[in-house]
Design a binder for these strands. Structure first.
Lengths: 343, 343
DNA sequence: CTGTTAGCGCTTTCAA
DNA sequence: TTGAAAGCGCTAACAG
């Protein structure tokens, strides 16, 4: 029942294993009749090559790791599909790893992936293993997305949305509707996504004459990975008197929307809601928050291309940064603030 | 820059590679001071084992393949997360493969997985490679879900919902509301999921005195993998006069719901809609179809356990079949038929 | 054009 | 308790 090996094929075809290898890889010319005999033997035996042995010899596994907080998050699962498609077209397989944003899980997955000799790693970092990832990036091709590693000697590529201009667009949208007490439900402040989004918010507000600093009351620091955090943020900011909310990612938005739904808040009459990111089945929701559309499929495809190029270049490429332009998708969850709520 | 090997560790610790191996695997007693020296050397060199070499020697890769039509489908992505969690707890990694329900993609992925020496395969079969999968199942642990392989000598486990009683519940629900012209938007008839769901429908209807045979006009054979197919089915059956629709899976339901939304059909006044399966953000939808809840996380965890047991038993276990009980989740998309539509 | 052989990194038998 | 050495399946350098 054990699988046939190259030796079995060679014996059956009456040639040496080197010849079989040459036929398999077309790595050198082989006489026609021998090719026939080898192929016949392969078929007879149902032989397929052992790519583990090949990896050991060749030092490439044709395997890539995809590390995210939660593959069940619709944004990541939309992405992984196209990562996989592009990689597969190049003969690669994909290991999927969900870290839950946890430091230990992340580092243990990274160890496993290295032991398995992956050729490269695509990762949405937790922000808690920055030094480790920087080290790895100098030995192995790495492509980051959504979250940067703030280390000077990090080597690798980075893909994200244009966070700054996306949040500016959302903020301006709300400002134009007349809102002033605009709340931002943000994620962990040590993540580049969070800081960039906060910066965009602050900049747009400043232009409107509003200072967003430590004193600004309508900021909530939640957790990008927790829907419940979005609900908590919405509750806190709404109770403080915010007339409009921006959720900084899709999960936070979902939590905020659930809060509104459960509290029977009228959107946009009592509260305006918009968000950065993609919500599935958006057009079928009872209220569609205005949002910044994301393109997980396109981002995934780009990431896969970047990592393949980096693998093929043996990690010699200069760092690259790709920003996807953002698009404001109007919904029906935002409107003018109630007259009695104007400051 | 190349990674340290067991040889480097041995040299640095002044011991043989056998001793290093014994320390790494605790496979035999080693004198205390040598253990210290080896561990020190490992740390100094930043050594981590090459699991590829280990696989070649040991004949197990600690790797499992997960093969589905589309990992971006919310049902599968919810599942893969818990598959991964359980496997990871046992030291396994997971290869994710989306076949798009395509015969060639499926078989090519299966080849790749075998070449990579996966220890087992969890698969939602396309239905187009049944003999191949049956063959594989006799060499390698296989766990199927949602779709059976109709071959007597298939070896492996199977996990699914209780399709029959689920559809019966949906059908009875509609019958009790007074519907008679109930449409079923089903998937490919060569898939066990489709036949089982059709059987349930037929049985419930028969009990109500309605014969569902070739002549029955309110049957639509669509494609489980295509949202658009759900829209086409809804259109066709609605135009034929169906007063209520059952979509046989989540994607078909989504398509049907989108059709209703675009056509501004009033649910449930003009049409009742219910479905088998889970739709994400269900409670935030403008209309919530009554549906049969599924438990992808629980199913995934169970699948992972089954495949691990089967791997550890060296594929000697008898075939097992696990059915998850179904639960009817009431929504607001179903109601009594309009008076003028009663037959 | 073909075959022999070393060796990828590891585990494990066998001897000491 | 330790080390030497064979061998997992494959590729590629080398010799013919």
């Amino acid at each position: 029942m054990a699988n046939a090996t190259i030796k079995d094929v060679a014996r059956r075809a009456g040639v040496s294993i080197a010849t079989v290898s040459r036929v398999l890889n077309k790595s050198a010319a082989v006489r026609d009749d021998l090719v026939q005999r080898v192929n016949q033997a392969i078929e007879d035996l149902g032989y397929y090559p052992n790519s583990i042995a090949r990896t050991l010899k060749n030092d490439n596994s044709k395997t890539v790791g995809f590390v995210v907080s939660d593959i069940a998050n619709e944004f990541f699962s939309g992405m992984v599909r196209s990562v996989e498609d592009v990689l597969n077209r190049h003969g690669y397989n994909l290991f999927v790893c969900s870290t839950d944003g946890d430091r230990t899980r992340e580092s243990s997955y990274l160890s496993l992936l290295r032991e398995k000799q992956v050729d490269g790693i695509i990762i949405n970092v937790s922000g808690k293993n920055d030094e480790l990832i920087t080290n790895i990036s100098n030995q192995l091709p790495v492509a980051l997305f959504s979250r940067k590693v703030p280390c000077a000697n990090f080597r690798g590529d980075f893909v994200d949305n244009d966070n700054f201009s996306g949040i500016v667009a959302l903020t301006n949208h709300l400002l134009e509707l007349g809102h002033r007490r605009i709340g931002l439900i943000n994620g962990q402040s040590y993540l580049s996504t969070a800081t960039e989004r906060l910066e965009g918010f602050r900049s747009a507000m400043r232009t409107a004459g509003i200072t967003v600093d430590e004193e600004y009351p309508y900021l909530y620091n939640g957790n990008f990975n927790r829907v419940s955090s979005g609900g908590d943020g919405a509750k806190a900011l709404y109770e403080k008197g915010a007339t409009a909310l921006i959720a900084a990612n899709n999960l936070l938005a979902l939590g905020a929307l659930q809060f509104c739904h459960e509290q029977h808040l009228l959107l946009p009459e009592q509260l305006s809601l918009c968000c950065f990111g993609r919500i599935s089945n958006l057009d079928l929701l009872y209220i569609r928050p205005t949002c910044i559309e994301q393109y997980p499929a396109a981002m995934g495809a780009r990431l896969a291309e970047l990592i393949i190029e980096r693998i093929e270049s043996k990690n010699t490429l200069l760092n690259r940064e790709i920003r996807f332009p953002t698009l404001l998708l109007p919904g029906n969850g935002t409107g003018a603030p109630r007259a009695d709520s104007l400051s």
